[in-house]
């Protein structure tokens, strides 16, 4: 009798201990439609190169609603974009607010909330050499800002994977606004949403 109880106790406690291993998934009861038959996004399958479900698109193909960016990732492309590329997105209050939101997510961590190159990571000396937007040697323009966000420059990487075309232009507006503020210029007038 007594030994039976002890054995039961040991079995129970063992069962509980084995359940609480947190590096393994819990067991499931009849996982009927738990695992997907089609390919999961970011899944791992032997059939694909590198076992990655996420394949890259064929070079040169254009999906609907996407405009390829035509300036090349080099000094000439930069100079050209700086010279002639213009922001087509209307400069409205709403768009600027969206741009600000995106800027604070993706840019402010290094460039600072007011664009003076003193973001949180710079203050902690994790990332150095972030220029202020009113840097004279760079003299950024709408086009050059977009070009740098798209391709990245030197140590800064590309942000085209995190934002789409339009979002990049929204951030562009906000960056130019910060630049104007740093240089003490008059804020640009908002356009009306007629376009």
């Amino acid at each position: 009798m007594k030994s039976l109880i002890t054995i039961l106790l040991i079995v129970f406690s063992l069962a509980f201990i084995s359940c609480s291993d947190k590096t393994e998934r819990n067991y499931q009861y009849f996982p009927n439609m738990y695992v997907s038959v089609p390919y999961d996004t970011y899944g791992e399958y032997e059939i694909f190169p590198n076992e990655q479900e996420a394949l890259t698109v064929v070079e040169g193909s254009i999906s609907r609603g996407f405009t390829p960016y035509e300036y090349e990732d080099n000094a000439e492309g930069y100079a050209k974009a700086k010279e002639e590329l213009k922001n087509e997105v209307p400069y409205t209050e709403e768009n600027l607010a969206k741009g600000k939101e995106l800027y604070n997510i993706y840019c402010a961590t290094c460039h600072g909330e007011n664009g003076n190159g003193k973001g949180y990571l710079v203050q902690r000396e994790k990332i150095l050499g972030v220029p202020s937007y009113d840097d004279q040697g760079r003299a950024i323009t709408e086009g050059s800002v977009y070009h740098v966000m798209w391709h990245g420059i030197n140590t800064m990487g590309s942000y085209a994977s995190q934002m789409n075309n339009e979002e990049l232009w929204l951030v562009d507006h906000y960056v130019m606004k910060l630049k104007a503020e740093l240089e003490g210029k008059e804020p640009r007038e908002f356009e009306t949403e007629s376009e």
């Binding site: 190159g117 150095l128 220029p131 140590t155």
Partner: peptide
């Protein structure tokens, strides 16, 4: 100066 201007590349 170095940290704000140069350290991005050097």
């Amino acid at each position: 100066l170095f940290n704000s201007l140069c350290a991005a590349c050097h």
